[in-house]
Amino acid sequence: MEIISKLSEDALKISLVGELDANGAINLDRIISKAIADGYYKIAVDCRQLEYISSAGLGVFISYISELKSHNGKFVFYHLRENVESVFNILGLQKVVAITHDFTQAKNQLHEV
């Protein structure tokens, strides 16, 4: 499940709740693609309530990385649980997306270019 809230003109917050598996990935993809179409290129992802993320879920974020970058945007993930962070690290995602500790840091990261 995802909860979306607007942060600013071009920034958006997506809160992920529960498990993000292959089924959830389809919905997430729809949400992000709509956000980008609406002009939101800076996306903060709140992972406080994210219990598990599957490779398909990761794939959704990965597929938009280059598109956000071309619009000077990015994903910033924050509040990752230990097991989720481990999945990010093993895959090497910390090299291509920003991972921060909390929302304040995430907001600062979003507006750094």
């Binding site: 990965i62 990385i65 280059s66 690290n89 093993i90 895959l91 090497g92 995602l93 090299k95 291509v96």
Partner: peptide, 10 residues
């Protein structure tokens, strides 16, 4: 566990 990135990401 060294650094490393999955294939197909960048």
């Amino acid at each position: 566990q060294d650094d490393g990135l999955g294939l197909g990401i960048i």
